[in-house]
């Protein structure tokens, strides 16, 4: 048996809702940072949204630019301090809606940075409105009858956006089971290792539940990801070079 204990860099309780995927991802990232012994050489760029709450319980240096501007911020951060591990924990709204320009620019330039994007298919903090990742027919607060192509346009799949780009790593994982969480952890570590090797832009999208805005129990939310969300957003490694 391997003893399991919360990573030491947590200094407080999380402020996420019960069953929130952000809490699970924060712990995964904290474990990787401690296992690689790089906490003091890591600076995280926050998005604004639920994801930014990592800073209230993780003892890691961070900056918080305006909503969605992570792609620009991490570009500058890495160039100013190339010796540090520069990464962002973003939401799908920040990374693919308001920040799609910054995210895409950073990827097109193949900046040597890491983006972890939490995809819960909606805007969580503001109450569950339509995000670019909201699936066709999915009911959300600003598309109460469900997303339609006519009214809301196609949904965004980062594999389609970046699949042919000259970037180092593009993967999608989930947190629905211990096995999937271990896969997420591997992808997180792989992205950071590529970053340290100077390979270029790495993006790991993590399918996470938002039980509060999905109006489901946490356990049901995990089933929903397995049965519905991950059918629309394919899991796996799309780019690995």
């Amino acid at each position: 048996m391997v003893p399991k204990k919360a990573p030491e860099l947590f200094y407080d309780e999380s402020r996420f809702c019960g069953g929130c995927g952000h809490g699970i991802f924060n712990r995964i990232l904290a474990e990787v940072l401690e296992e690689m012994d790089i906490v003091s050489d890591t600076i995280i760029c926050s998005d604004i949204g639920c994801n930014h709450q990592f800073q209230f319980w993780m003892n890691v240096d961070a900056i918080v630019p305006p909503h969605g501007k992570m792609g620009a911020a991490i570009t500058a951060m890495k160039r100013v301090r190339p010796d540090k591990n520069i990464m962002t924990i973003a939401g799908d709204g920040g990374a693919y809606a308001i920040g799609i320009g910054e995210t895409t620019s950073a990827a097109l330039r193949n900046e040597n940075v890491v983006m972890f994007v939490m995809n819960n298919t909606l805007f969580g903090m503001t109450g569950g409105q339509l995000a670019p990742t909201t699936m066709i027919d999915q009911k959300v607060a600003s598309a109460p009858l469900g997303r339609t192509v006519e009214d809301n346009g196609q949904n965004t799949d980062v594999f389609k956006l970046m699949g042919d780009m000259d970037i180092a790593y593009l993967a999608r994982t989930s947190v629905t089971s211990p096995a999937n969480i271990m896969k997420t952890k591997k992808a997180v570590r792989k992205a950071i290792e590529k970053h340290q090797a100077g390979k270029g832009f790495c993006l790991v999208e993590v399918l996470v539940p938002c039980p509060t805005n999905w109006h489901m129990t946490p356990a049901k939310s995990m089933e929903y990801i397995d049965e519905v969300v991950s059918k629309v957003y394919e899991l796996g490694e799309k780019i690995d070079r």
Partner: peptide
């Protein structure tokens, strides 16, 4: 925002 990030660091 690049300016912000660089100044922060």
């Amino acid at each position: 925002n690049m300016t912000f990030a660089a100044r922060c660091l």
